[in-house]
């Protein structure tokens, strides 16, 4: 019985860590980009953690376009061509914010 209790605690702790470890604090994202960020979080977390794109050292908009295009073609990505503009809007903002002298809003956790 004690082992079951420890197992439940471990699972809950893991879930808590998972909740805290993903993505950005939405409050740091401009309100106009909230919907774009939600789409980004939903689509890109399907296959990998959000820290992967958020930590990518990509600065050029053209590179983001190629990156998203490559991801969109992954089997079952769920990223339709119509989703791309919103994803690029968020990523280019995020990329510029990271380069800002104050470190920008939000940061990949």
């Amino acid at each position: 019985m004690r082992q079951v209790v420890w197992l439940v605690i471990a699972v809950l702790a893991g879930c808590g860590a998972y909740q805290r470890g993903e993505g950005l604090d939405v409050a740091t994202v401009p309100p106009a980009l909230h919907a774009d960020y939600e789409l980004f979080a939903r689509r890109c977390s399907r296959c990998h953690s959000l820290s992967r794109p958020l930590n990518a050292r990509i600065t050029a908009d053209e590179h983001w376009a190629e990156y998203v295009s490559r991801m969109r073609r992954m089997p079952g990505s769920g990223i339709s061509p119509d989703d791309v503009p919103a994803l690029l809007r968020f990523l280019t903002w995020y990329s510029a914010a990271r380069r800002a002298p104050d470190g920008g809003a939000g940061g990949a956790r």
Partner: peptide
């Protein structure tokens, strides 16, 4: 050889 095609926004075939 691979490919992916969207039928609108709701359906993707790979």
């Amino acid at each position: 050889l691979s490919g992916s095609h969207f039928f609108g926004r709701r359906l993707q075939l790979d």
